[in-house]
Structure formats: C-alpha cells, structure tokens
Simulated scan of single mutants.
Amino acid sequence: MKPTHNISVFLIVSIFQLLFGWKGMAQGIPNLGQTDRWMQGALAAIERKDYQTANELFRSLIESGLPLPEEMPYYFAETLFELGQFNNSKNFLDKYLELTGQTGRNLQGAKELKQKLTKPLAEISACGLCDSKGYRYEVCATCMGQKKQEQTCDYCKGKTIVGCSKCAATGMIKKINVFNQVEIFECERCNAKGRLTCPECQGTGKQVSECKTCLGAGRVTGEVLCDHHDHEEQEKK
C-alpha cells in the first residue's frame, strides 16, 4: 500500500507542476491573435482608403509592445504618406528597408513610395513656415510673438532683495587685528542690513528676458500640417 500512496502523491505533484507550468508559459506567450486582428483591421482600412483608422490601429499595435509583423512598417509608411505626415512616412519606410533589405514582399512598393516622398520632403525642407516634420509654426501664446516677456527675476526669485555676499547676509564683518583679536565691524557694502537690492532687476522682482516657452523664437510648432503657403500675405493681396 505504501508504494501506491507514493505514486498518488507523485501524480498530484506532477499535475500541479503541469498546470502551473503551462500557466507560466501562457503568460509568457505574446498575444499574437491581437496582433493579427490589428494588422488585418489596418489593411482593411487601407483598402477602403480609411487611412485615419489604419493609423490608429497601427499605433495601437506599436504601443502594445507586441512583436510587429515584418511588413507592418511599409503599410504604416503608406498610411502616413496618405495622411500628409511625410517625415514620419520616411522614417518608417527607412526602417522597413533596413529590416527587409531586398527581400521584402513590398520592395517594389517601397521603392515607389520613396520616389513619391522626394517632392513633399523637398518642399518641407525649403519651407520657412513649418518645422522639419512639416508641422506649421504658430505664434507663441506666451509672448505673443514678441520673443521676450516680463518674467519673475531668476536672480532674486521675485523677492527684490538678495543677501549681501560680503558679510554673508549678517550685516557684520569679523576681522583679526595685529594682536590676534577678533574685531567686528558693520558691513559698509550693505550698511549693516545684510541684504541688498537685487542688482539684476533693480528691486522690481521682474525682468525682461527670452521667452521660456518658445526660447526666444516667437513661435512654436503647432499641430496642423503645413501647406507651404503664406496665407497672411495672400490675404493682404
């Protein structure tokens, strides 16, 4: 009877190990089904020219951290091209060509897309109205395009006064005389007050300096893709 008992215990332990072992393995297996659903959904959206939906599905796939299908960067590059995000399209196209070399299933399409990107990328590079990604600049809302603004003084933090460095803000100065005795004198620099009017803002607590939002540019990158036309000049005409 004793051997039978040992066999029963062994079987129970084995079953537990099998169950928990498979559970651990299941947790480590990527959810490839979800990857396939996102990918197929994005391709279907491209077929019906719904590029915004395709864009959202591709981004969900990227943000999930799941393994990406080999051809995904190409299809995402095509989607971004159709949405006018030419710089991002180029980045994903370059990544696709880097990963697949001359063996990608969409190699010919990738070459054609690279050619199509030449003109819009050149327009972005030559345009002074947008950043390098093609997003139009807009007037900085902080300084209203003035590049500078009145801000709290960085030196005194708006307190208008600073501690006297000569007397360490005590108002008194200690000196050792020739008899090696300590003598205390009033600080002449701050008139024994221990503080001085801020030399940077002259006691106003404010200073006019480079706008911290736009870093003195007077403009910031907006969220609208640029069409490379100066609409203000056109309105004047």
Rank of each mutant, 00 (worst) to 15 (best):
K95A: 15
R195I: 14
T142K: 15
V162P: 11
C211Y: 05
K95M: 15
I173L: 13
K114S: 10
L117F: 05
G158P: 06
I173T: 12
V182Q: 12
T221A: 10
R219V: 07
T204N: 01
K159V: 01
N87F: 07
Y135G: 01
Q202A: 08
G216I: 00
K111T: 03
N88L: 09
V139G: 07
C167N: 04
K133A: 11
T197M: 07
T160Q: 06
G104S: 00
L93N: 11
D154N: 01
A217F: 12
K206S: 05
F86Y: 15
L107P: 00
T204L: 06
C187S: 13
Q108E: 14
R189F: 13
S132P: 10
T103S: 03
C167W: 06
S125I: 09
Q151P: 01
T197F: 05
N191E: 15
E186P: 13
N87A: 15
K90I: 08
P199K: 05
K193P: 02
G134M: 07
A169D: 12
C167T: 04
L117Y: 06
K148R: 10
K212D: 12
E98I: 07
T221N: 03
E123R: 11
D154R: 05
G222I: 01
C153G: 05
Q151R: 04
Y155V: 14
N191W: 09
N87S: 15
F86K: 02
M172A: 11
G101W: 04
V162I: 15
Q181M: 06
G163P: 08
L113I: 05
K174H: 12
S165F: 11
V139Y: 07
P120E: 14
Q102G: 01
G171N: 12
T213S: 15
F185V: 04
G145M: 08
Q149W: 10
E98F: 08
N177S: 02
G222D: 04
R189V: 10
G163W: 07
K114V: 02
R105M: 06
E200L: 06
I176V: 15
E112F: 08
P199R: 02
Q108T: 07
G158M: 03
K157G: 06
Q115P: 10
S89W: 07
G109M: 02
K114N: 11
E183P: 07
C167Y: 05
T204A: 00
N191K: 15
D94N: 13
R136Q: 04
A122V: 08
D131L: 09
G104M: 00
I161V: 14
C167P: 05
C130H: 11
C187F: 14
C153P: 03
T197K: 11
F185G: 04
E186V: 10
E186L: 02
G216Q: 13
T213M: 15
Q115D: 15
N177L: 02
Q149C: 03
Q181I: 02
D131H: 08
K193N: 10
L107D: 03
C214F: 08
V220E: 08
E138S: 05
C164M: 10
E150A: 06
Q207K: 03
N180Y: 03
V182D: 13
M172R: 13
G158W: 00
E210G: 10
C198D: 02
V182N: 14
L113S: 01
C214E: 04
Q115R: 15
V162S: 03
Y155C: 13
G222K: 01
K159P: 00
Q102V: 08
